[in-house]
Amino acid sequence: MATGGRRGAAAAPLLVAVAALLLGAAGHLYPGEVCPGMDIRNNLTRLHELENCSVIEGHLQILLMFKTRPEDFRDLSFPKLIMITDYLLLFRVYGLESLKDLFPNLTVIRGSRLFFNYALVIFEMVHLKELGLYNLMNITRGSVRIEKNNELCYLATIDWSRILDSVEDNYIVLNKDDNEECGDICPGTAKGKTNCPATVINGQFVERCWTHSHCQKVCPTICKSHGCTAEGLCCHSECLGNCSQPDDPTKCVACRNFYLDGRCVETCPPPYYHFQDWRCVNFSFCQDLHHKCKNSRRQGCHQYVIHNNKCIPECPSGYTMNSSNLLCTPCLGPCPKVCHLLEGEKTIDSVTSAQELRGCTVINGSLIINIRGGNNLAAELEANLGLIEEISGYLKIRRSYALVSLSFFRKLRLIRGETLEIGNYSFYALDNQNLRQLWDWSKHNLTITQGKLFFHYNPKLCLSEIHKMEEVSGTKGRQERNDIALKTNGDQASCENELLKFSYIRTSFDKI
């Protein structure tokens, strides 16, 4: 039985969820670079991206490699990797027998973001014989899940209580170790020597080791999670996991709180800001991140802002960003909400898709409305799209047979046209069989910064309504002859009103 693990408890099935942008060198404390989270699957090609990484700022997932063999891993080693800020997950990587050479110096898994409450997941690794993470000293947050690894031993010899604050939620089941077939031998045991430290858990006094050649490092209890030197002297209180010299914040392997210019500090002093819960960055760093993602459509890219001495992905609820200094300031009234469309555009074809934009005031991208039916549609669209004030790209209304009016965009005031449909149009209306009105132009103002209007096959939309939009939106004169079809717009509506004058002759039985 794995020490510190839980057996036999019912657990939810383990679901495996399925960018080499360097964020800056980590400095003297770390020998390499800070790398983003990685999802490495199918083959070993991307694994080489770990070569210079000291910190993975995010998670590391290595999974679904069915053609790899043990010899493929023999020359692979990433000794610079010290810390993973989120979680480490391995799933069905064939041929991998140990992690001792792959990650010989991995010391800390912070667990800032977890995989279903777990910071370390080893699942269905069919050839893994031992973990071998002999320098792993601290899992700051989260638990361990090690399950269905039929060859995995050296679990009962690990004292997880020396690595985690609590072992109650560890789930370590259905491994070879369960069948008591392992016969784990710690260093020196074969020669009758006791080389590794022994600890007591559940009444068992057991030597602690990761492999037959690597003991588990056990520091004096007084050192807590700070770690200790090879001689057993406690590291500085700002260290986490390990250090090369005692009581020196510049000799830590990793930091308990924050890293700044080669030393570990309790908090980031001005003019620095907390970033990702582990390091200090200056304003320029946060500003660069903001600008890199301002026009990016890459998933996970955030326009970072500053709030409460932190550089964070977005302002919290009730705050909006001051564009001059990136500071989050309290909103006066309802907060603006910028919604970034991942692929640059979004099609609204149902109430469900409209709900995804609920509360958005600025759309960074283009909207395509293609709704053919739905219950209580006008009210639903207004509830979900009615706060949109600005669209950076274009607005396209296409084959939306259920629409009679666009009044559900009740606050839309600006279409920038930074991206144009077919390279020309910022407003595009095609084949809307029941569209009769755009907006009530006596109450609604709309500016279209650039781009043209396109109207074709809107049989109940009168040309007068379209011409009014040209005047109000500032697009009059931009359109070419064929942009607004004269014969297919309003051709099934009563669009022309003329005053009919009647004269009559009164007659009676005795007068003409």
Rank of each mutant, 00 (worst) to 15 (best):
Y134P: 06
V167M: 05
N149Y: 00
E151F: 08
E238F: 05
V108G: 05
L29A: 15
N325K: 07
N150G: 10
L99K: 01
F258E: 03
C243D: 01
L152F: 01
F275A: 04
S317P: 10
L120P: 00
E124I: 01
K176P: 05
Q276D: 12
P36C: 03
I40P: 00
Y319C: 14
C182K: 01
S112G: 09
M137G: 09
V144T: 05
C255T: 00
F116P: 01
N195Y: 09
R41F: 05
T85Y: 04
I109M: 02
I158D: 02
D75H: 03
C182P: 02
P336D: 14
P249T: 12
A190P: 08
T211F: 02
P79H: 07
E130K: 10
A254L: 13
S112P: 00
K191P: 07
N322E: 00
G241Y: 04
R141V: 04
C215G: 02
H302Q: 12
C239D: 00
E168T: 12
D169G: 11
A119I: 00
C196E: 02
F205W: 12
E49D: 06
Q61A: 15
S244N: 11
P187G: 05
R297N: 12
V167L: 09
N135T: 11
I306N: 02
C280G: 01
L233E: 15
D165C: 05
F275M: 09
C335G: 02
L120G: 00
P104A: 03
S143C: 14
N308F: 08
N282M: 15
C234P: 01
G142I: 01
S296L: 09
R46S: 15
K193A: 12
P79Y: 09
G300K: 15
D277H: 14
L155Y: 03
T45I: 07
L63V: 08
I109S: 00
L44Q: 08
W160H: 00
R46I: 09
N170M: 06
D178Y: 12
E181N: 15
F66R: 01
N325G: 14
F258K: 15
L136G: 01
S324Y: 03
D288I: 03
Y30P: 02
N105A: 12
P313W: 14
C53W: 00
Q287W: 10
T320Y: 04
D177I: 07
K67Y: 07
Y94C: 10
